[in-house]
């Protein structure tokens, strides 16, 4: 980041840019969450399964997010790692109603955490326990138990229950990310 950019960030003229990776299994609601976070005039009406990835941008009060919205389908998951290096934060989305595949989600999470590009960095991870509106959804506490989130010691993490279709719980998560970035110094 150039001197001028740094200055404008300090003065609050230009928002600090943060690269975020949005990961999770297919059909967990990643694209829907990102879509909801965009300004209402840029939102698209129908969400289709992502093929590969797409880059989306949205702003919070003090940050400008560039999100790499990755496809969650099985055959694209091994392509996530190409983008780990650039990610300064991770949003991991879980379908809380899909108990059956919770183990798969845990496995993907473990692979992610053990990847050399992620393992030794204090990179913040925000978990969305999504689809809370569904009847058979489990609570966010239960989700964190199922995924053994308490074992993550070296990275700041936060889980919040969300309903991406109504947009509930999303702001809470984004606020956590924002607070973290303003409070601590992220390695840029």
């Amino acid at each position: 980041m150039g001197l001028l950019d740094r200055l404008s960030v300090l003065l609050g003229l230009k928002k600090k840019e943060v690269h975020v990776l949005c990961l999770g299994l297919d059909n967990s609601g990643k694209t829907t969450i990102i879509n909801k976070l965009k300004p209402s005039n840029a939102q698209s009406q129908n969400i289709l399964p992502t093929i590969g990835f797409s880059i989306e941008k949205f702003k919070s009060s003090s940050l400008s997010f560039t999100v790499f919205d990755m496809s969650g389908q099985g055959r694209y998951r091994n392509l996530w790692e190409h983008y780990y290096k650039e990610g300064q934060a991770i949003i991991f989305v879980i379908d809380s109603s899909d108990r059956l595949r919770m183990v798969v989600a845990k496995e993907e999470l473990d692979t992610l955490l053990n990847h050399p590009d992620i393992k030794h960095r204090r990179i913040p991870i925000l978990f969305f326990a999504n689809k809370m509106d569904l009847r058979d959804a489990v609570t966010s506490v239960k989700v964190s138990q199922l995924l053994c989130l308490e074992n993550i010691k070296d990275k700041p993490w936060h889980i919040c229950a969300s309903d991406a279709i109504k947009g509930e719980g999303l702001q809470e998560g984004v606020d956590w990310l924002q607070d973290l970035s303003t409070a601590t110094t992220w390695k840029l």
């Binding site: 992502t50 093929i51 590969g52 990835f53 797409s54 880059i55 919205d69 496809s71 694209y76 392509l79 190409h82």
Partner: peptide, 12 residues
């Protein structure tokens, strides 16, 4: 390999 990764970006 895996050039289909850009599919969504291009459809967008």
């Amino acid at each position: 390999e895996d050039v289909i990764i850009v599919t969504s970006s291009l459809t967008k």
